[in-house]
Simulated assay, not measured.
Amino acid sequence: MKTVAACVESIVLQQPFLEDALSKEIINYSALAEHLQQQVSQQLGKTVKTGSIMMALRRYKDKLTVSRPYYKIEVLLGQLGDITLRSNLSDFTFRNSDTLIHSQADILNKIKDKNHIFYTFTRGILESNIIISSSEKADVLDSFKSEKCLEIKENLSAISLLLPKNNTKVAGLYYQILKRLALQNVSLYEVISTTNEFTIVVEDDIVDNAFSIIKNLNKN
């Protein structure tokens, strides 16, 4: 049988910002309980008093404090490495095909000696993306001339961040980065990651704000 506590936890888990506010004790329990009352009552099929919801919220907050290793996240944030900013980038989206890999090989051959340029390739289920220095646009279009180009986006910048070697052992690091960007209304055009690197691609007009947020991750 579903309980008030289970309903409240389910609702809060779907709203990470709300969970974060609870963990930091910067939320009004009474107001939140009134806000959630109708939703909890609907899920349980009966009227639920706000007092019961407030109690469930407080118990959930206590569980957050005990069970969530936020201290590990803070340690990781303090160990973040160098930040690299690359501008003048273009993003090309191509429909996947049997010949796409040959087109990719062709562009790789053209840029193999250009160590100064930025280049990433990501293959999805239906489409693939190339993000590359805009100076190479003509070569990309030539190498992929037989492919279906779905979209081209220019005036992009990439911010790359070196992560601590143990970043894969602690849950929530990406969440902390993305949360802070979202709180400042920074929209991401692409997200790219390797084991120890995390890169966001944004439009040029918001790159200064995004860079400032990334730079100050270990200071918040």
Score class of each variant (00 low, 15 high):
L13C: 13
F118Q: 15
E203C: 14
N28Y: 03
A138D: 09
I26P: 08
L22R: 00
S133W: 07
A182W: 05
I83P: 02
I206A: 08
K215P: 09
A31I: 04
V201N: 03
S23V: 02
K215I: 13
A182D: 14
T195D: 08
K46I: 15
K153N: 11
F198R: 09
K215H: 13
K153W: 05
I214A: 03
A182E: 02
Y71K: 14
S146A: 13
Y71D: 11
S67T: 11
I177D: 12
D113A: 11
S160V: 03
A210H: 00
A6Y: 11
Q184R: 10
L163V: 01
I177A: 06
S143T: 04
N220Q: 14
T195S: 15
Q79S: 06
N220G: 11
S212N: 14
Q42A: 11
N96L: 00
L18M: 01
K63V: 00
K179A: 04
A6H: 02
A105W: 14
A21F: 13
S128P: 05
V170A: 05
K46L: 08
P69F: 06
D98K: 14
E154H: 10
L141D: 03
N115T: 10
N115E: 07
E19V: 10
T93G: 12
K153D: 11
A138W: 10
I177C: 00
V207I: 13
Q39K: 13
S143Y: 11
S87I: 07
I26N: 13
E154S: 13
R68P: 12
T47C: 13
F211G: 02
N155Q: 15
T194I: 06
P164L: 06
E190Y: 04
V201M: 01
K63Q: 05
I159H: 03
E34N: 15
K165H: 10
F118P: 11
E197L: 07
Q14H: 15
L89H: 06
F198V: 07
I111T: 01
E203W: 03
S30Q: 12
